[in-house]
């Protein structure tokens, strides 16, 4: 099958719930940002140093979870298709918390703001952290009325695990960046005013 469909040449695309919307639609934007995050996680995985196989496995799992999150974000609230999507695991964020808790004890205590960077993989992890925050902001914009969000009630509950997951995930990338620097013997660089 051809990769180009030529159905989006007039600037529109379809949500998985069927609506034709401009590609600048907030729901398309949120999906695009989760997709961007997924690509950054791929770059991070490609930059991992030796001896971090467990991290690589976790990142692959996160990439699959992000595809599920993207599918939920691209379905209009209350649409029939939502019933066909696998419900997001309510423990998505819990799993990430356990990973954070497992990495934290080995790290030196944080006493100041640190500059993003260090080992290539740690630098990518900081990029992932910031892209993740942006994806989270876009996802939240879909569900809260203050920003024109359209999801309410049940539909919003379907997205709740995704939003908590994205929130926890950026914390995970922050800790992972420190973990990867520590693992490769690179010290945190503190912020100097």
């Amino acid at each position: 099958m051809k990769i180009y469909t030529q159905t989006g040449d007039q600037g529109k695309t379809s949500l998985i719930s069927g609506e034709r919307v401009p590609k600048s639609h907030p729901r398309v934007q949120a999906c695009g940002e989760v997709d961007e995050l997924n690509a950054v996680v791929g770059a991070l995985a490609a930059a991992l140093p030796p001896g971090t196989e467990a991290v690589a496995a976790e990142l692959r799992r996160i990439q699959s979870d992000l595809l599920d999150v993207g599918a939920w974000l691209s379905a209009a609230p209350g649409s029939d298709i939502q019933q066909q999507l696998t419900p997001l695991d309510p423990d998505l964020a819990g799993r990430i918390e356990r990973r954070i808790d497992a990495m934290t004890p080995s790290l030196p205590e944080l006493k100041a703001f640190i500059l993003p960077g260090g080992h290539m993989s740690a630098a990518w992890s900081h990029v992932a952290r910031t892209v993740c925050r942006r994806a989270e902001r876009s996802a939240i914009a879909l569900v809260i009325p203050e920003t024109g969000g359209e999801s309410q009630g049940e539909a919003r509950n379907g997205l709740a695990p995704a939003i908590v997951f994205l929130n926890r995930l950026s914390d995970y990338f922050f800790v992972l960046a420190r973990y990867l620097n520590h693992h490769t013997g690179i010290a945190d660089v503190p912020w100097r005013k």
């Binding site: 159905t7 719930s17 034709r20």
Partner: peptide
Amino acid sequence: MRLIDERFHSSHVFTET
């Protein structure tokens, strides 16, 4: 799809290629 965007734009569309 081009026609739908022109003439039937409040429609929903599902496709299988």
